[in-house]
Design a protein around this nucleic acid. Structure first.
Lengths: 178, 178
DNA sequence: TATATTTTTTCACTTTACTAAAATAGGGAA
DNA sequence: TTCCCTATTTTAGTAAAGTGAAAAAATATA
């Protein structure tokens, strides 16, 4: 069951009356009231309309006010192990359901993944330390410290550290792939 | 109107029959079929159920856009100026149309933004250097170097550097807000 | 090709969402 | 305290979602 109280909370935060939200969203006053009090389970289209009136996305609406485990302290980071990868991944974002994920990726000197990976969504990476070579399909892209890159994650890709120094980079992905 | 063909597409990708998805999601075969062909506008709870059967989140279901890649070299970074902010922002992601954005945020000692901001989406931040205090609504969250945080960007927020040292953090946002 | 089985769609019914109008509740002014 | 106005909830009706069973279509097998 969808929690309608989030709608009321957002509405009040934006200082809107039921009448005003009804007008902005083209949903009747009575319906908004019923949804807010969990008297009804809205159709997705009705939710879209309410989101328009509230100026939020559905993902935001569903994830709003979920403040559990926002912070990941350095000492509490989870290390991710992937079956096909020897690289060190540390999750920076919390494990709760979200549309955005952040990880630290560490490669030892001359380390690489042999296997190309592909997954839904897109990602951005920023080189914190050392260098990093990204193989995107058959293209080899070399990044120095401070460089960054964005690409579509469905493009088969893998990481290579061709140097004698450790490489550290931070990556954001939407949707999450871990 | 919600586009039900996404459900069919995902179902076929996962090699599920209507009967199998119906079973995994506890939604009747007939309903799944009707939703897939846009004959009906599902309740949000029904969509939750379908997502469970398809093993995707609502955000994933509702979708995002793919696009092409681009590198931002350190020397080519764009600095972003915001009308209400004195903080230094540098864009790490390309300016191409995307659903994901990454920026470097730099605060001088004792620098802060006085104004709470709110915008659509969600964000993750990782403290690269120094410390950073995030004000989320009325909550004050203190992060040390190496700490990270995820939150919904519609929650009013602002950044504060309460220390004598410079603070550097990297932030990912979806959807982009710059 | 014929038959069997599975998958999907249609049908008719029950249940529930959404609505306009009426009723109730809350707040402010005189 | 009374009155007025606005905000919210309730009511009763219409429209639409969700269902199980039947029908139709698609696929597999001999």
């Amino acid at each position: 069951m969808f929690d309608g109280s989030v709608i009321r909370k957002l509405r009040k935060e934006k200082n809107l009356s039921l009448k005003e939200l009804s007008s902005k969203s083209s949903v009747s006053i009575a319906t908004v009231s019923q949804i807010e009090r969990d008297n009804t389970d809205p159709a997705i289209t009705t939710l879209y309309k309410l989101c328009k009136g509230l100026d939020v996305t559905i993902a935001e609406l569903i994830g709003y006010d979920d403040n559990t485990d926002r912070v990941v302290k350095k000492r509490d980071r989870k290390t991710i192990t992937l079956p096909d990868s020897k690289l060190k991944y540390q999750l920076l974002s919390s494990r709760m359901k979200r549309n955005l994920e952040m990880v630290l990726v560490e490669l030892e000197p001359h380390q690489e993944d042999r296997k190309l990976v592909t997954h839904k969504g897109e990602e951005c990476g920023y080189v914190l330390q050392g260098s990093l070579t990204i193989i995107l399909d058959n293209e080899e892209i070399h990044l120095e410290e401070g460089d960054s890159i964005s690409f579509n994650s469905t493009i088969p890709h893998r990481y290579v550290n061709p140097t004698d120094e450790k490489s550290m980079s931070v990556w954001a992905m939407t949707p999450p792939s871990f």
